[in-house]
Amino acid sequence: MEVKRNDTAERCDTSVVLCGIMLDNPVIAASGTFGYGYEFSQIYDINVLGTFSFKGTTLYPRFGNEQPRIAECPAGMLNAVGLQNPGVDAVISRELPLMAKYFHKSAMANVCGFSIEEYVAVAEKLDLEEQVGWIELNISCPNVHGGGAAFGLDPKMAAEVTSAVRRAVKKPLIVKLSPAAADIAAVAAAVEAAGADAVSLINTLPGMRIDLRRRRPLLANEKGGLSGPAIFPIALRMVYDVYKTVSIPIIGMGGVSTAEDVIEMMLAGATAVQVGTANLVNPTACLDIINSLPSVMTKYKINKLSDIIGGAHL
Protein backbone atom coordinates (compact mmCIF):
# COMPACT_ATOMS: atom_id res chain seq x y z
CA MET A 1 0.00 0.00 0.00
CA GLU A 2 1.51 3.31 -1.09
CA VAL A 3 0.73 6.16 1.28
CA LYS A 4 1.27 9.69 0.01
CA ARG A 5 2.54 12.53 2.11
CA ASN A 6 0.04 15.29 2.71
CA ASP A 7 1.68 18.45 1.42
CA THR A 8 -1.11 20.94 1.96
CA ALA A 9 0.05 23.20 4.74
CA GLU A 10 3.34 24.38 3.25
CA ARG A 11 3.10 27.66 5.16
CA CYS A 12 4.07 25.89 8.38
CA ASP A 13 7.82 25.62 8.80
CA THR A 14 8.55 22.26 10.40
CA SER A 15 12.29 22.28 9.72
CA VAL A 16 14.87 22.06 12.48
CA VAL A 17 18.64 21.98 12.44
CA LEU A 18 20.29 19.08 14.23
CA CYS A 19 24.05 19.50 14.69
CA GLY A 20 24.43 21.43 11.46
CA ILE A 21 22.19 19.19 9.36
CA MET A 22 18.77 20.49 8.35
CA LEU A 23 15.83 18.14 8.93
CA ASP A 24 12.59 18.76 7.00
CA ASN A 25 10.79 18.02 10.22
CA PRO A 26 11.84 16.97 13.74
CA VAL A 27 10.46 13.41 13.41
CA ILE A 28 13.14 10.73 13.63
CA ALA A 29 12.23 7.05 13.72
CA ALA A 30 14.00 5.53 16.73
CA SER A 31 16.60 2.80 16.64
CA GLY A 32 15.35 -0.73 17.15
CA THR A 33 11.84 0.06 15.96
CA PHE A 34 12.61 0.74 12.32
CA GLY A 35 15.18 -1.87 11.29
CA TYR A 36 17.08 -0.38 8.34
CA GLY A 37 13.88 1.20 7.07
CA TYR A 38 13.24 -1.41 4.39
CA GLU A 39 9.94 -2.82 5.70
CA PHE A 40 8.57 0.70 6.19
CA SER A 41 9.72 1.75 2.71
CA GLN A 42 7.30 -0.88 1.37
CA ILE A 43 4.46 0.94 3.15
CA TYR A 44 5.31 4.63 2.62
CA ASP A 45 8.10 6.81 1.23
CA ILE A 46 10.33 7.05 4.28
CA ASN A 47 12.09 10.09 2.79
CA VAL A 48 9.33 12.15 4.44
CA LEU A 49 11.05 11.50 7.78
CA GLY A 50 13.39 14.02 9.34
CA THR A 51 15.66 10.98 9.40
CA PHE A 52 15.82 7.62 11.18
CA SER A 53 18.23 5.91 13.50
CA PHE A 54 18.95 2.43 12.25
CA LYS A 55 19.15 -0.71 14.38
CA GLY A 56 21.92 -0.59 17.02
CA THR A 57 25.20 -1.96 15.68
CA THR A 58 27.85 -3.89 17.57
CA LEU A 59 31.29 -4.99 16.40
CA TYR A 60 30.31 -8.64 15.95
CA PRO A 61 27.01 -10.25 14.94
CA ARG A 62 24.62 -10.87 17.81
CA PHE A 63 21.56 -13.10 18.00
CA GLY A 64 20.40 -11.37 21.16
CA ASN A 65 18.35 -12.85 23.97
CA GLU A 66 16.34 -16.07 24.00
CA GLN A 67 12.55 -16.10 23.60
CA PRO A 68 10.30 -14.67 24.79
CA ARG A 69 11.60 -11.17 24.19
CA ILE A 70 8.32 -9.24 24.22
CA ALA A 71 5.71 -8.64 26.90
CA GLU A 72 2.67 -6.42 26.79
CA CYS A 73 1.85 -3.81 29.42
CA PRO A 74 -0.94 -1.30 29.86
CA ALA A 75 -0.05 1.60 27.54
CA GLY A 76 3.22 0.08 26.47
CA MET A 77 5.43 -2.95 26.14
CA LEU A 78 8.59 -4.53 27.44
CA ASN A 79 11.30 -5.73 25.13
CA ALA A 80 14.44 -7.69 25.78
CA VAL A 81 15.70 -8.18 22.25
CA GLY A 82 19.31 -7.82 23.34
CA LEU A 83 20.81 -5.92 20.40
CA GLN A 84 20.28 -8.49 17.69
CA ASN A 85 22.22 -7.22 14.69
CA PRO A 86 24.52 -8.60 11.98
CA GLY A 87 27.63 -6.74 13.17
CA VAL A 88 29.21 -3.58 11.79
CA ASP A 89 30.92 -5.15 8.76
CA ALA A 90 27.69 -6.73 7.50
CA VAL A 91 25.80 -3.50 8.17
CA ILE A 92 28.28 -1.63 5.99
CA SER A 93 28.58 -4.21 3.22
CA ARG A 94 24.95 -5.36 3.07
CA GLU A 95 22.44 -3.11 4.84
CA LEU A 96 23.71 0.38 3.97
CA PRO A 97 23.95 -0.21 0.17
CA LEU A 98 20.39 -1.58 0.24
CA MET A 99 19.23 1.35 2.34
CA ALA A 100 20.68 3.81 -0.20
CA LYS A 101 18.12 2.58 -2.72
CA TYR A 102 15.11 3.75 -0.71
CA PHE A 103 16.42 6.39 1.73
CA HIS A 104 18.19 9.40 0.28
CA LYS A 105 18.85 11.46 3.39
CA SER A 106 21.57 11.17 6.01
CA ALA A 107 20.72 8.42 8.49
CA MET A 108 21.66 8.15 12.14
CA ALA A 109 23.93 5.26 13.12
CA ASN A 110 23.15 3.84 16.56
CA VAL A 111 26.37 2.41 18.00
CA CYS A 112 26.47 -0.16 20.79
CA GLY A 113 29.27 -1.90 22.62
CA PHE A 114 30.47 -3.82 25.63
CA SER A 115 33.71 -1.88 26.09
CA ILE A 116 35.13 1.50 25.20
CA GLU A 117 37.27 -0.21 22.54
CA GLU A 118 34.19 -1.76 20.91
CA TYR A 119 32.27 1.53 20.85
CA VAL A 120 35.29 3.22 19.26
CA ALA A 121 35.80 0.47 16.67
CA VAL A 122 32.15 0.46 15.56
CA ALA A 123 31.84 4.25 15.54
CA GLU A 124 35.07 4.66 13.55
CA LYS A 125 33.80 2.36 10.81
CA LEU A 126 30.34 3.90 10.55
CA ASP A 127 31.80 7.41 10.65
CA LEU A 128 33.38 6.75 7.25
CA GLU A 129 30.05 5.91 5.60
CA GLU A 130 28.62 8.69 3.46
CA GLN A 131 25.02 7.81 4.34
CA VAL A 132 25.68 8.29 8.04
CA GLY A 133 24.92 11.82 9.19
CA TRP A 134 25.21 11.35 12.93
CA ILE A 135 26.62 8.79 15.32
CA GLU A 136 24.20 7.98 18.15
CA LEU A 137 26.15 6.38 20.96
CA ASN A 138 23.86 3.99 22.81
CA ILE A 139 25.16 3.86 26.37
CA SER A 140 21.77 2.91 27.69
CA CYS A 141 20.56 -0.47 26.41
CA PRO A 142 19.10 -2.24 29.46
CA ASN A 143 18.94 -5.68 27.85
CA VAL A 144 22.54 -6.82 27.63
CA HIS A 145 24.36 -8.01 30.69
CA GLY A 146 27.58 -6.15 31.32
CA GLY A 147 26.77 -4.11 28.25
CA GLY A 148 26.36 -0.49 27.37
CA ALA A 149 23.86 0.42 30.05
CA ALA A 150 26.55 0.49 32.71
CA PHE A 151 28.23 3.36 30.86
CA GLY A 152 25.02 5.33 30.93
CA LEU A 153 24.44 5.04 34.65
CA ASP A 154 27.54 6.87 35.80
CA PRO A 155 28.59 10.38 34.65
CA LYS A 156 32.30 9.52 34.82
CA MET A 157 32.02 6.36 32.72
CA ALA A 158 29.66 8.09 30.29
CA ALA A 159 32.23 10.87 29.84
CA GLU A 160 35.04 8.35 29.29
CA VAL A 161 33.32 6.50 26.46
CA THR A 162 32.09 9.76 24.94
CA SER A 163 35.53 11.34 24.80
CA ALA A 164 37.09 8.16 23.40
CA VAL A 165 34.53 8.03 20.58
CA ARG A 166 34.73 11.80 20.13
CA ARG A 167 38.41 11.50 19.29
CA ALA A 168 37.67 8.72 16.79
CA VAL A 169 34.85 10.25 14.75
CA LYS A 170 34.35 13.40 12.69
CA LYS A 171 30.57 13.32 12.41
CA PRO A 172 28.22 14.84 14.97
CA LEU A 173 28.15 12.67 18.07
CA ILE A 174 24.86 12.15 19.89
CA VAL A 175 24.88 10.25 23.19
CA LYS A 176 21.72 8.30 24.02
CA LEU A 177 21.05 8.44 27.75
CA SER A 178 19.52 6.03 30.19
CA PRO A 179 16.57 6.95 32.40
CA ALA A 180 17.94 4.49 34.95
CA ALA A 181 20.78 6.87 35.88
CA ALA A 182 20.42 8.36 39.35
CA ASP A 183 20.74 11.84 37.83
CA ILE A 184 20.27 11.93 34.06
CA ALA A 185 21.04 15.66 33.92
CA ALA A 186 24.44 14.98 35.52
CA VAL A 187 25.18 12.32 32.87
CA ALA A 188 24.08 14.77 30.16
CA ALA A 189 26.38 17.46 31.54
CA ALA A 190 29.26 14.99 31.71
CA VAL A 191 28.91 13.87 28.08
CA GLU A 192 28.54 17.49 26.95
CA ALA A 193 31.82 18.30 28.66
CA ALA A 194 33.37 15.22 27.03
CA GLY A 195 32.54 16.50 23.57
CA ALA A 196 29.06 15.23 22.71
CA ASP A 197 27.30 17.37 20.09
CA ALA A 198 23.83 16.36 21.30
CA VAL A 199 22.07 14.01 23.67
CA SER A 200 19.07 11.77 22.97
CA LEU A 201 16.78 10.60 25.75
CA ILE A 202 15.27 8.46 27.05
CA ASN A 203 16.04 4.85 26.32
CA THR A 204 13.60 2.31 27.77
CA LEU A 205 13.02 2.00 31.52
CA PRO A 206 13.93 -1.29 33.20
CA GLY A 207 10.82 -3.32 33.99
CA MET A 208 9.45 -6.86 34.17
CA ARG A 209 6.35 -9.07 34.10
CA ILE A 210 5.77 -12.42 35.78
CA ASP A 211 3.92 -15.33 34.14
CA LEU A 212 1.22 -16.32 36.64
CA ARG A 213 1.00 -19.92 35.44
CA ARG A 214 4.72 -20.60 35.51
CA ARG A 215 5.42 -18.22 38.42
CA ARG A 216 8.53 -17.14 36.59
CA PRO A 217 9.58 -13.91 34.86
CA LEU A 218 7.76 -13.73 31.55
CA LEU A 219 10.81 -12.63 29.58
CA ALA A 220 13.67 -15.07 29.08
CA ASN A 221 16.00 -12.21 30.03
CA GLU A 222 13.85 -11.75 33.18
CA LYS A 223 13.86 -7.96 32.81
CA GLY A 224 13.23 -5.79 29.80
CA GLY A 225 12.87 -2.19 28.73
CA LEU A 226 9.51 -0.45 29.09
CA SER A 227 8.48 1.77 26.19
CA GLY A 228 5.32 3.30 24.79
CA PRO A 229 2.92 6.00 25.98
CA ALA A 230 3.35 4.78 29.59
CA ILE A 231 6.79 6.44 29.74
CA PHE A 232 5.98 9.70 27.93
CA PRO A 233 5.55 11.86 31.06
CA ILE A 234 8.81 10.51 32.51
CA ALA A 235 10.66 11.18 29.26
CA LEU A 236 9.20 14.66 29.03
CA ARG A 237 10.27 15.49 32.59
CA MET A 238 13.80 14.26 31.88
CA VAL A 239 14.06 16.30 28.67
CA TYR A 240 12.86 19.30 30.68
CA ASP A 241 15.51 18.72 33.37
CA VAL A 242 18.33 18.09 30.90
CA TYR A 243 17.42 21.26 28.95
CA LYS A 244 18.14 23.28 32.10
CA THR A 245 21.56 21.68 32.43
CA VAL A 246 23.11 21.49 28.94
CA SER A 247 23.38 23.83 25.98
CA ILE A 248 23.77 21.16 23.26
CA PRO A 249 20.63 20.03 21.38
CA ILE A 250 18.38 17.39 22.89
CA ILE A 251 16.53 14.71 20.96
CA GLY A 252 13.48 13.81 23.01
CA MET A 253 11.92 10.36 22.92
CA GLY A 254 9.85 8.00 25.00
CA GLY A 255 6.25 7.16 24.14
CA VAL A 256 5.85 9.83 21.47
CA SER A 257 2.83 8.84 19.36
CA THR A 258 1.16 12.04 18.13
CA ALA A 259 2.01 15.47 16.71
CA GLU A 260 0.91 16.93 20.04
CA ASP A 261 3.49 14.76 21.81
CA VAL A 262 6.17 16.10 19.44
CA ILE A 263 5.22 19.67 20.30
CA GLU A 264 5.21 18.93 24.04
CA MET A 265 8.68 17.42 23.75
CA MET A 266 9.93 20.47 21.88
CA LEU A 267 8.43 22.85 24.42
CA ALA A 268 10.24 20.86 27.11
CA GLY A 269 13.50 21.48 25.26
CA ALA A 270 13.86 18.97 22.43
CA THR A 271 15.28 20.13 19.09
CA ALA A 272 14.11 16.93 17.43
CA VAL A 273 12.00 13.99 18.52
CA GLN A 274 12.31 10.26 18.05
CA VAL A 275 9.31 8.02 17.56
CA GLY A 276 9.88 4.41 18.55
CA THR A 277 7.31 1.95 19.85
CA ALA A 278 4.45 3.74 18.05
CA ASN A 279 5.94 2.40 14.77
CA LEU A 280 5.44 -1.17 15.97
CA VAL A 281 1.72 -0.80 16.60
CA ASN A 282 0.95 1.59 13.76
CA PRO A 283 3.33 1.16 10.81
CA THR A 284 2.46 4.64 9.51
CA ALA A 285 2.90 6.34 12.92
CA CYS A 286 5.74 8.63 11.77
CA LEU A 287 3.96 9.50 8.53
CA ASP A 288 0.73 10.24 10.40
CA ILE A 289 2.59 12.50 12.84
CA ILE A 290 4.37 14.36 10.03
CA ASN A 291 1.10 14.79 8.13
CA SER A 292 -0.74 16.16 11.14
CA LEU A 293 2.04 18.49 12.34
CA PRO A 294 0.94 21.48 10.20
CA SER A 295 -2.67 21.40 11.41
CA VAL A 296 -1.62 20.95 15.03
CA MET A 297 0.89 23.80 14.63
CA THR A 298 -1.88 25.99 13.24
CA LYS A 299 -4.15 25.05 16.12
CA TYR A 300 -1.53 26.17 18.64
CA LYS A 301 -0.46 29.21 16.57
CA ILE A 302 3.02 27.96 15.75
CA ASN A 303 4.44 29.18 12.43
CA LYS A 304 7.97 27.95 12.83
CA LEU A 305 8.49 24.80 14.85
CA SER A 306 12.07 25.61 15.79
CA ASP A 307 10.81 28.75 17.60
CA ILE A 308 9.20 26.68 20.34
CA ILE A 309 12.24 24.65 21.44
CA GLY A 310 12.44 24.97 25.22
CA GLY A 311 9.41 27.28 25.16
CA ALA A 312 7.95 25.80 28.33
CA HIS A 313 10.87 27.12 30.38
CA LEU A 314 10.59 30.55 31.98
Binding site: G32, T33, G35, P68, I70, N279, L280
Partner: peptide, 27 residues
Amino acid sequence: EERMACGFGVCMGCSCRTVTGYKRICK
Protein backbone atom coordinates in the same frame (compact mmCIF):
# COMPACT_ATOMS: atom_id res chain seq x y z
CA GLU B 1 4.24 -19.17 16.97
CA GLU B 2 6.19 -16.62 18.96
CA ARG B 3 5.42 -13.55 21.03
CA MET B 4 5.53 -10.58 18.66
CA ALA B 5 5.48 -6.84 18.94
CA CYS B 6 5.26 -5.47 15.39
CA GLY B 7 4.29 -8.48 13.24
CA PHE B 8 6.03 -7.10 10.15
CA GLY B 9 9.72 -7.68 10.70
CA VAL B 10 11.19 -4.60 12.31
CA CYS B 11 11.43 -5.14 16.08
CA MET B 12 13.37 -8.45 16.19
CA GLY B 13 11.06 -9.54 18.99
CA CYS B 14 10.29 -12.97 17.51
CA SER B 15 13.67 -14.04 16.11
CA CYS B 16 14.65 -17.70 16.08
CA ARG B 17 17.70 -19.65 15.01
CA THR B 18 17.49 -21.83 11.91
CA VAL B 19 19.92 -23.90 9.87
CA THR B 20 20.00 -21.05 7.36
CA GLY B 21 20.57 -18.32 9.96
CA TYR B 22 18.43 -16.10 12.15
CA LYS B 23 14.84 -15.69 11.05
CA ARG B 24 11.97 -13.50 12.14
CA ILE B 25 8.91 -15.68 12.77
CA CYS B 26 6.63 -12.79 11.74
CA LYS B 27 8.34 -11.94 8.45
